[in-house]
């Protein structure tokens, strides 16, 4: 039986209670929306990207503890990184959540650090989509695709 503290680690509970960078940066030049309608998790992500570097990150929205902490920790992790580094980190995080060695290989140049706390979410497959929503929204913002992102595959 998976343990609750594996999913609700201290660092995750802390970021859920006090989300970092939850604001709309006035100079943002990239925006993307992530929405998981079944859960009700929603995030609007803002980036200020200049000379290939993510100078500022912010987001607004509401969601469960996992999605809120994931958005907060993602924003801290990618702030100041180059677009390439952020994409590598996306691969690395995705690989962590999906247990996929290929993704880990693609992202080998960057360190997961605190983000490893999300490894416990894997034991709760239904919640993986909560952890990955902010990251897929980041990917959409970096690609400037303009589409609303969802990590839910089921429907009702």
């Amino acid at each position: 039986m998976p343990e609750l503290r594996e999913i609700y680690q201290e660092v995750i509970l802390d970021h859920n209670k006090n989300p970092r960078n939850r604001r709309c940066p006035p100079e943002a030049n990239r925006i993307a929306v992530g929405h998981n309608p079944l859960c009700g998790d929603k995030i609007t992500l803002y980036l200020l990207v200049e000379d290939g570097v993510i100078r500022d990150v912010g987001y607004e929205g509401s969601g469960c503890a996992i999605s809120t902490a994931s958005a907060s920790m993602m924003s801290e992790a990618v702030k100041g990184k180059t677009v390439e580094e952020a994409e590598a980190l996306f691969c690395r995080f995705h690989a962590l959540m999906m247990a996929c060695p290929q993704g880990a290989e693609n992202g080998r140049r960057v360190e997961l650090g605190k983000l490893r706390a999300f490894a416990g979410v894997r034991e709760f497959p239904i919640r993986v989509k909560c952890a990955t929503l902010a990251w897929h929204t980041l990917e959409a913002a970096l690609k400037n695709s303009g589409e609303t992102v969802s990590t839910e595959t089921g429907s009702e």
Partner: peptide, 26 residues
């Protein structure tokens, strides 16, 4: 203090099955 989805995960660990979400009534 907690989002319905987190409530659902935690009470499930106690063997209690409830529904969380929009209940097909957005």
């Amino acid at each position: 203090c907690a989002h319905p989805h987190d409530i659902g995960t935690i009470v499930d660990q106690e063997g209690v099955a409830i529904r969380t979400g929009h209940h097909c009534a957005q």
